[in-house]
Design a protein around this nucleic acid. Structure first.
Lengths: 224, 224
DNA sequence: ACCTGAACACCGTTCAAGT
DNA sequence: ACCTGAACACCGTTCAAGT
């Protein structure tokens, strides 16, 4: 049990800070903030505050905020487990994509951080390598494999970017209402399929449906 | 009782602004800024400045910045041309997705703005309706059509979110170098396919490749 | 080398005040 | 109703100064 020691800790934010910080600690603090309260909450001031350190201290470890965030995405990417199983290429590829999808749900800020700037660090490319191995072993040419991976990557990251992992019953009802009340003359196909459409707008099941269509398509292009 | 004529004070930025603003003008100014200089440049201060108006004036037309940006995405979504052609479902669907893809390249800020919050306005749902019509006429059930549309939507928006429309030769060479120099023991499949991978990381051609695989997959699930 | 507060040029938005 | 500047609570980052 922790007891108040003789030198019971004085003002935490005042005396010169003796603790040795590491880039990793900073990056982890940033990820915790970003994943828990959204990327916009991961400000330099709040990251420093979470570490009990002055704001400017962060700038001795990273040139600027961009460099810090780059290191953070990299760290998150390195935490993806690459499933190591055998079996048919389609099953292996499906397992890999599901694992990536899971990790994006666990670290939602990674999706936003990887928009626009491709992340080409070895840690981030482990998943690409795993995918390319499976595809090339399955018989796809290098060019076919590269295109197939791009499709799988974009679908998986795009799904996380545009689909909330879960949504309240109230929100779902609201969406359904909005779709069902569209004028039937202008929107015959959609207003009649409001329930079905809402089912695809959140959660994980719709991800699987799309992934299986993509795998169907890849299989078809392989045999032809 | 304003008499401007008596005092011929011609301070250009000073006299009360007589111009009647509309929500549409504001929204268009915001889109021009966002598309030309990036979403982060579309600040309330700069939008107002572009219109020659005080910052706070914008708040008489929109409750806050979120409401203004919502109106902006809606405006951009309304500008998508829905191709009105006949022919086989696969050709029609392909034309529709290509048109959406084109509009996202023209208004890149729309992609980011639609992340996380689904846009359920009639203007934005026109494309969904068009897609659902094609799919249901092709013989897909409502549930199949909804899933198919989600897949096409996520792929198309995700592609724009994660793929720069064009990239300098210098950048491409840099990417190629990074991939080719990966340690061959850890990255045999990727380091050997650096050229092919780089080809899929920008531009429009890779979008078509992925789209065709998706259409293959949908066709397969229809005939089964 | 590591750490820091003050200051600067920005944000979105509230408020009180003008027409 | 429409429009506005000042002010507030935030940003990222530069600078000068400490250990």
């Amino acid at each position: 049990m922790a007891r108040a020691s003789a030198s019971s800790s004085a003002k935490p934010g005042k005396q010169p800070n003796t603790r040795r910080l590491t880039r990793e600690e900073i990056v982890e603090a940033a990820l915790v903030l970003a994943d828990r309260e959204g990327l916009e909450s991961a400000t330099m001031r709040r990251i420093a505050q979470a570490l009990g350190v002055g704001t400017m201290t962060l700038y001795t470890y990273f040139r600027d905020k961009d460099e810090l965030l780059d290191a953070a995405v990299d760290h998150a990417a390195a935490s993806v487990d690459i499933p190591e199983q055998g079996g048919p290429w389609r099953v292996r590829l499906r397992g890999l994509m599901k694992e990536i999808h899971r990790s994006l749900i666990a670290h939602p800020s990674g999706v936003e951080l990887r928009m626009k700037r491709p992340l080409l660090s070895p840690a981030a490319l482990r998943t690409t390598e795993a995918g390319m191995q499976i595809l090339q072993a399955a018989g796809f040419t290098k060019a076919q494999a590269a295109h197939a991976w791009r499709l799988l990557f974009v679908y998986t990251f795009g799904y996380s970017a545009f689909t909330p992992p879960e949504v309240s019953v109230r929100t779902r009802r609201e969406w359904r209402r909005l779709l069902a009340r569209l004028p039937a003359e202008g929107f015959p196909a959609l207003s009649g399929a409001a329930d079905e459409a809402v089912e695809t707008m959140s959660g994980e099941a719709a991800y699987d449906h799309g992934l299986d269509r993509i795998l169907d398509g890849l299989e078809a292009s392989l045999s032809s």
